[in-house]
Amino acid sequence: MGDPIVISGLSHWFGAGEARKQALFDIDLRVARGSLTVLMGPSGSGKTTLLTLIGCLRDVQAGSVRLLGTELHGLAPPAQVRMRRRLGFIFQGHNLHEALSARQNVRMALGVQGRGDPRAQDRAAEHMLGLLGLAERVAYLPANLSGGQKQRVAIARALVANPEVVLADEPTAALDLDSGLNMVRLLRRLGRARGTTSVMVTHDPRILDLADRILTLEDGRLVGDRPGKGAEI
């Protein structure tokens, strides 16, 4: 089985006419199955754009992105929607639904897959929340959770359906040291056990020690690609 993410000659622009601005320049990249890859770079370097292109959240304009064996360039919107169900997204903001409990928020990721009956979905959601230290908070609404707890619910939501690829943007920003490290260790465990591939945008130096690979983007160009210390673990 090939690499889950294969990018070649990827360029991307924003705007039109004279305001058109290139955000990514001719990116070539392969990401290995089960690896934890960190994307680094200054603000505006194109990290998030790259993440959204890999995640089928934007249309590929030029070049190629093969995700889990499927070419995303020219992929029809319904097929993009189906592809996104195979991914896990962790956003910088938790984006939890305020009217749903922690368990119900996590269940939403299983509901879209149509997996299991509601009770089985509840059990799976509770299990994942338990892994993230929220076993006592499953019935809480987001308003009654701390910032870190909300972020952990969002992480549980991203991971509960066993995604093949996890795309995360500053997932540890709202977490304390232990929670942040636990979360990344969980991603590493999933990578080892299930082959889950993770790509993470972060500036958190604590995470770098656990990454298998560290990529650096500057001004839309891939300028650094080195192994992380995680690769040695």
């Binding site: 903001g93 990721a109 879209v112």
Partner: peptide, 18 residues
């Protein structure tokens, strides 16, 4: 008021009919 939540559900793969 729930655009961000709906956008999250869209990202998760919920189709327009949902």
């Amino acid at each position: 008021d729930h655009l961000r939540e709906y956008a999250t559900f869209k990202a998760m793969g919920y189709p327009p009919r949902f």
